[in-house]
């Protein structure tokens, strides 16, 4: 039967935010505009921070507040800002990438969500508190991030997929346990930041050498004449 009616309003907000995180993963999958996709990613980070903050309030965990603030600063503000600056520098603001086989991509994505739900069912049997249902969402966000990286050709979209995988792992940590230890979290946050800087350098290198960020064109060793537009 429904448990949502017995949850407090705060807990219901957490569930809503989790559903929106999942929805934003679908947006990342289908959004043809680069800047809008970056914005969706920023919102995902913001919602993640909201979830962490609310879980911290409900469970009265002080250190989760710190990681909520960290998530907000890093994933909702800093990384999107860096990506935004990069796209402006590479003059990709108006870049449109039509998703090939959009309906197929969407169906597979829905199947991935179902698969992750099926996979997580035994974990839900354990009594984990009100966030146990979010574990399936977090696994789905991880798988959808992988799917974004598979289906998108453009490097910036792939980085967004990669970062949303990290979002999913973080959500899993918050919902299944009471968050990771603060040291581990700081380390991961630092790693993500370094990864972002490295990605930026790679973007510039790829852009300089093949004059595009379409990674499908990296498959060929030689640039044929008709390809060098």
């Amino acid at each position: 039967m429904n448990v949502a009616s017995e949850l407090s309003l705060l807990q219901q907000t957490v569930l809503i935010a989790a559903a929106l995180v999942l929805f934003l993963s679908f947006v990342l999958l289908a959004q043809p505009r680069l800047l809008a996709a970056i914005r969706a990613f920023a919102w995902q980070g913001g919602l993640l921070a909201l979830i962490t903050g609310l879980v911290a309030t409900v469970n009265a965990e002080a250190h989760l507040f710190v990681s909520a603030l960290l998530t907000l600063a890093l994933k909702a503000i800093l990384i999107p800002w860096m990506l935004h600056r990069l796209t402006r520098r590479l003059e990709l603001e108006r870049h449109l990438e039509a998703v090939k086989h959009a309906a197929f991509v969407q169906i597979v994505a829905v199947a991935l969500v179902l698969f992750s739900y099926w996979l997580v069912l035994p974990i839900i049997q354990q009594d984990l508190g009100f966030t146990r249902n979010i574990v399936a969402v977090s696994l789905a966000v991880v798988l959808l991030g992988l799917w974004v990286m598979i289906t998108r050709q453009q490097a910036v979209f792939q980085v967004l997929g990669f970062m949303s995988i990290e979002n999913g792992l973080f959500l899993a940590a918050v919902s299944a346990t009471e968050g990771m230890p603060l040291v581990v979290e700081l380390g991961i946050a630092f790693d993500v930041l370094v990864a972002m800087v490295l990605f930026g350098v790679f973007f510039l290198r790829i852009h300089n050498s093949i004059d595009s960020l379409d990674v499908d064109r990296l498959n060929r060793l030689h640039e044929r004449l008709e390809d060098s537009r």
Partner: peptide, 22 residues
């Protein structure tokens, strides 16, 4: 309308995943 269908599916999924406690 594809987007509307996706929203409907997400509604169904989020009901099953998030709202039914087992």
């Amino acid at each position: 309308l594809n987007f509307a269908l996706l929203l409907g599916l997400l509604g169904l999924l989020s009901h099953v995943i998030l709202e039914i406690g087992t």
